[in-house]
Simulated assay, not measured.
Amino acid sequence: MKKVADEIPAYSYGTPAVGTSPVSLDELNALKVSVGFTVEDECYLRMAGEVLDGQTKQIVAHWRSGIIASIPNLARHSRTPEGAQNPEYLAKSNLRFEQWILDTCLRPYDQDWLNYQHEIALRHTSIKKNQADGVQSTAYVPFRDVVAFAAVLNDTIRIYLTAKGHSDRDIAGMHLAWTRSLQMQIVLWTKTYMDLAKTSNEW
């Protein structure tokens, strides 16, 4: 499996540190059917992974520095409670953000992938946010911001999928596979927020 760096702080994919997802593989397979995710999408995602590999740093800089940094209600989630910048936290989480791009495209959607989706969601809620890097920041990322920013991720990734001269058909196929995958991931993250809503409003 390709990695964006030899050492990625707090990246625990496939390790015992990651708990078991409350979503079953059967439920994941049903979700694939609902979103229209097919074997062809899997092939296109692998193609996308080869295209995006080597561009992840640029992509995350685009998302974080070019977009999120200019939106106060989003930028605050990687800053101190007083609003000061936290470069070390940003650098560590950026590496994980980069690796998430490759994991989306190149990992098999098996139990380890399903488990790590749950871990990603937990790290955006008050259950685990800030713990991975031992920092002080906002207590959680509101679910509304997670879902809303997905539109930006889907829109902006397309230009990077054109980088290696693929046909318009292949670019469209890669982009559709990416958006379907992200839609599934958001649904999986929703489960964690919904369970948490019984005791805490993090919408």
Results as ranks from 00 to 15, higher is better:
K2T: 11
L45I: 14
Q117K: 05
A30E: 14
E40H: 14
S21V: 10
L90D: 10
L52D: 04
I159V: 07
L74H: 02
Y140G: 02
K191N: 12
V23H: 08
A197T: 00
V4Q: 01
R158N: 05
L153R: 01
T104D: 00
V146P: 13
I68Y: 13
H175L: 06
F37A: 01
D26K: 07
R96F: 10
I8A: 00
S93R: 07
Y13K: 13
V152H: 00
A132V: 08
R107M: 12
E40G: 10
K92C: 13
T162C: 06
A75L: 04
E119Y: 11
G83R: 11
W113F: 15
G165R: 03
Y140P: 06
P22D: 07
R169A: 06
V60Q: 06
P22L: 12
H77M: 02
D170N: 15
I127Y: 05
P108M: 10
W178F: 12
Y11N: 09
T162P: 02
G134C: 04
I59M: 05
T179S: 09
S24Q: 08
P142G: 04
R76M: 12
I171L: 02
A48I: 09
M47F: 02
M47G: 10
F143A: 00
Q185Y: 07
A30L: 06
P9C: 00
F37S: 05
G36T: 15
H124Y: 14
D112R: 08
D6T: 15
G66N: 04
Q185T: 08
A61K: 13
P87D: 00
N86D: 14
A139T: 02
K3D: 06
F37K: 04
G83A: 05
